[in-house]
Design a protein around this nucleic acid. Structure first.
Length: 193
DNA sequence: AACCAGGAGAGAG
DNA sequence: CTCTCTCATGGT
């Protein structure tokens, strides 16, 4: 067994299954609206803690607009105050509208490159959407992953692409495993503090 | 009351 | 390609 798999076993042993804490993101199967909530959350959580994202999601739900179609109809002016708690509310409102427009065309095969073409969607957000909303076996790399790899001395190159390759090449290509593993990394990081 | 929280775009060098 | 600045709120 390689070091990456061992790391997963270690985190699994320490924290159990992640769906206790990541109720939505590690849930399966997900309904269509749950998948959309993951997409919305993935964009809103950029450079913001999850608590504030939940406040925004809550606002959207109260406004009956926690879906991509509803968001489109809302428009920027009405959307901004709802997503304000998660910060960067003007830009994030635009990001959500862009994403909503993209998914409204119901693309059959959603490619990573298409997501990366959206404003406000970089590698981490694109991969989070692919993995957690669309169940694609793509490993998400974030600051927590980077810190953990550095701490464990598992790699010298900490760039996104290299770390993603490191995880994907050392694990069986299963989205359930990727979802749980990444969630456990975040849970573990937060647990340390 | 400074500092951080599950980034990404735009511009500069 | 690698910095650096900007976007901005809410909790501690």
């Amino acid at each position: 067994m390689n070091q990456i798999k061992s790391l997963y076993q270690e985190l699994r042993k320490k924290h159990g299954k992640p769906e206790g804490q990541w109720k939505l993101w590690c849930k399966r199967p997900k309904t269509k609206s749950e998948r959309e909530e993951v997409i919305i959350g993935a964009i809103l959580t950029q450079r913001t803690n999850w608590r504030n994202v939940e406040l925004s999601i809550s606002n959207l739900k109260k406004a009956g607009a926690c879906s991509l179609a509803k968001i489109s109809k809302l428009g920027a002016r009405k959307l901004r105050p709802l997503v304000r708690p998660s910060g960067f509310y003007k830009t994030k409102a635009d990001y959500l509208l862009g994403a909503a427009k993209f998914f409204a065309r119901k693309p059959k095969r959603i490619k990573r490159g298409d997501l990366l073409g959206l404003k406000g969607v970089g590698k981490e957000t694109a991969d989070s959407i692919l993995l957690y909303a669309l169940d694609k076996p793509i490993f998400v790399i974030d600051e927590y992953t980077r810190r953990l790899v550095k701490e464990k001395g598992l790699a010298k190159d900490l760039s996104y692409d290299h770390l993603q390759k490191l995880f994907e090449e050392n694990l069986s290509k299963k989205w359930r495993l990727y979802q749980d593993f990444h969630a456990l990394i975040v849970i573990d990081a937060k647990n340390k503090k």
